[in-house]
Simulated scan of single mutants.
Amino acid sequence: MILRRYMTRQVASTTALVLGFLVVMMLGGRLIRYFGIAAEGNLDIGLLFVIIGYNLPYFLELILPLAFFIALMLVFGRLYVDQEMAVINASGVSRGKLARLMTPLILALFVGEAALSIVGKPWGVRSSEAVWQQQALTSAFDLIRPNEFISSGNYHLYVGSLSDDKTQLQDVVLIQSEPSKKSADNTDHSINKDTITLAKRAEQVENAGSGVTQLDLFQGRRYEVGAGSLKYNQVGFDRYRITLTESSKEVVTENNIETQEIGPLWQAATGSVQVGSADALRAAQGELGYRFTLPWLMIIAPMLAVPLAQVRPRQGRWLRLFPSILLFVSCALGIISLKNAVGKGSVSVWAYAWLVLGFMALALYMNWGSRFQHRLRVRFEDKSLGSVDNSIKDSNGGQL
């Protein structure tokens, strides 16, 4: 019990220290970039740390398994260098049993990594994109000048006058340019359709929902005009609400697959609901496999760290640290590359399982390979000695 508490405390504290160091390194460059955007006036300084907080699960998703692996290497390496492992082994506790003493910590980190991968990162990315969309619209509204056109995405806005807080617009002309579509006879001729909306006033909708920005237009008319066509549609309205930015979770596509919750993502990956294209289906399968595979890095980490941390006297615990980190990082990079490969349809989604099983098999060989070879060698030597004894007995008439 004392040994379990000691190992758990040592590994947990070292993991926290390594994790803090890696987070500061990873977020440092992103923070400097955001400061530059804020200095240019394209980002509200009050939202700077909000966006950093939303992006934190995105970084922790890959940093946490690496920090745990490095902590295991440091703790086990110190046990070998300080000859504490020899004392522990002499007391009847093998290195495998020592690693199994940290099972509660490993399971806790496994659950935490699963929560980050399945729930935390999609929520953070979705919330961050919503903040950026709202900030982009706010920046566009800040650029509004009376009697001038401004553009935001596929919208072009003209305002005759506006209030001091730039939320109430007067004499509004809003032009929406839609992408080209094929004509009804499915020929190569494309039809460009523009929607022109005229209104006496407009105001931005408050509490429109996360990731959705809307605008209310009052007392106006709406025209749908097709380029090269003599026909148009005209509609009058007293109040008309338009959506300037769509929520990222409305439709599952290959572009917003990282922001999807696990429920819609599972339905899209299994074909329970119809998605936009075959590419979206493969992207959903790749993202789903990616989220379910990352937590297994918490199981692979101790399986690899226990044999890799073993060093001989006077070698130092830093000798194997960097090669071991490269081996573990190759596993994480393999999972990331499989996400892209599955999304492109190059490999099946079951490649995630084969990758995890392959690294587990490698870890088992590193832990038990030498023992198996030793047992086979001893058994072979015993058989050879037995055959020699039998031959001696036969030559001496059954007597030695």
Rank of each mutant, 00 (worst) to 15 (best):
K200S: 14
Q399E: 13
Q135G: 02
G120D: 05
T187H: 02
R241K: 12
M26E: 01
K249P: 00
E40K: 10
V125Q: 10
S330W: 03
A12D: 04
S324L: 05
L22M: 14
Q134I: 02
S94N: 09
V23H: 00
S180H: 07
D171A: 09
G46P: 03
A108T: 15
A278C: 01
E250W: 03
Q10F: 01
T15H: 10
S177N: 13
A278N: 13
W266N: 12
V24H: 00
M7P: 07
V23N: 00
Q285C: 02
T245F: 15
F380C: 08
R320E: 01
E381D: 11
S210Y: 08
D394C: 04
S139P: 00
I335G: 04
V329Y: 13
A284T: 10
I299L: 09
I325W: 00
V172D: 06
E113R: 00
L137F: 15
K339M: 09
V347C: 07
M366V: 06
F359K: 02
S348F: 00
V349N: 01
I37S: 05
F68L: 11
L60F: 01
S139W: 05
E84N: 08
R33H: 11
Y155P: 04
G334T: 07
E224H: 08
A71D: 01
P323H: 02
Q135D: 04
L244R: 06
R314N: 10
V275I: 03
V159I: 13
I392L: 15
V131M: 03
F380S: 15
Q267S: 10
I325M: 07
T197G: 06
Q135M: 09
F21Q: 00
E61M: 13
